[in-house]
Write a protein that binds this DNA or RNA. Structure first.
Lengths: 194, 194
DNA sequence: GTAAAAAGATGATGTAGGTTAAGAAAATTG
DNA sequence: CAATTTTCTTAACCTACATCATCTTTTTAC
């Protein structure tokens, strides 16, 4: 069943009847994205939330010097979207790109609204999802303000163990907020210590 | 009416009947906090969301060197809580302190859950509130990664004009993530330019 | 209204992490 | 599997911002 992983995810927070599951499924669509292809480009209006079932996406912004900053990774079991654009339906700043061939399930903004009306439980589900995301983001702000790059890396390793041996170093460097060069130096420093 | 400002805030996103308003009000309590007093100390479990009606609160964490980092300000019309602790009901890391004598309206976690059940519309209200908060936090992460302190200050001035002439400089410095000394120098630099 | 405390300014010096550049290793592509 | 592209490493030098210390100004509390 292609929606299994997603259904698991949803069932952690709300209980659905068979009928409600059917409604939910009818609002979803599947899609595959090739490595290096984009689900969303900055400047576009984000019309979908995406749930990754295999592969990995990353969301990043480009600053005025052309440097990319990774805001989030989406490995299997994670949602990704440009929340600002999705909510406001204005052009966003996020690029969402496949780091490898990736399968996703899409829920359009329009269908999400319908879902809220037809199965109000989903208000709760997405509220909880966003609450968790907010907590993670607040923690990241605190970490960026109060920890060294080395400490942030160590936290990243603990928090996303599956991503570590999966991602190129420069992606992780970008996520924790340092240059690839510094990240490399930092890592050889860490190895020397242990 | 002491709940006017809050009702305005709620009415932006959902429409309430008189009966629903009554239910809502019955779940709320008012409180005053003296300048320098704490609504929440780190290590405590956060049992309330607070809505500020007058005065100003700040939420901050303390790092291992004893340095305080301001995560958020809550002027009138804003909500504040330790979201991590509120959700998980585990000890949190946030200190919430009154920067001046402040009046707030409290909604307890318990009453919030009751409210969701008795007036499900509030699921939507808080979902939207948290969505907006998430977007602001994501933007802050991006800003911290890609902008200089000066640029972040300039954005802060535009985004929170009422706070600027209201707050001690060191609070703003802490929010944008620099030392008070550097902030002071930066500001005299900016004045010289204009 | 005055003593004490907090906030702000400024100078000298220190450092985490950035920049530039260039070569080596690894991964992709056809 | 060879050519190309991407990633990683290392080194020299640079800069935004931190730290420490001292002084002035403003705010707070009694």
């Amino acid at each position: 069943m292609p929606f299994d992983l997603l259904l698991n995810n949803v069932s952690k927070y709300i209980h659905l009847t068979e009928a409600e599951k059917e409604v939910f499924f009818s609002f979803l669509q599947q899609k595959s994205i090739k490595r290096k292809a984009f689900l969303l480009d900055e400047g576009e209006i984000c019309r979908y939330s995406a749930f990754v079932t295999s592969g990995c996406l990353r969301g990043y912004t480009v600053d005025k010097n052309g440097i990319k900053h990774v805001l989030s990774f989406a490995p299997p079991g994670w949602w990704i979207a440009d929340m600002y654009s999705l909510i406001s339906q204005k052009p966003g700043i996020l690029n969402i790109e496949a780091l490898e061939d990736t399968d996703i399930i899409l829920l359009s903004k329009v269908n999400q609204e319908k879902l809220y009306n037809e199965v109000p439980k989903f208000e709760r589900f997405f509220r909880i999802l966003i609450e968790n995301s907010l907590v993670a983001n607040q923690q990241r702000i605190v970490d960026n303000m109060s920890l060294t790059a080395e400490e942030r890396y160590s936290i990243f390793c603990k928090r996303y163990p599956t991503l570590i041996d999966h991602l190129p170093q420069k992606q992780i460097a970008s996520y924790i907020g340092v240059t690839p060069e510094f990240f490399s130096r930092m890592r050889t420093g860490l190895l020397r210590k242990s």
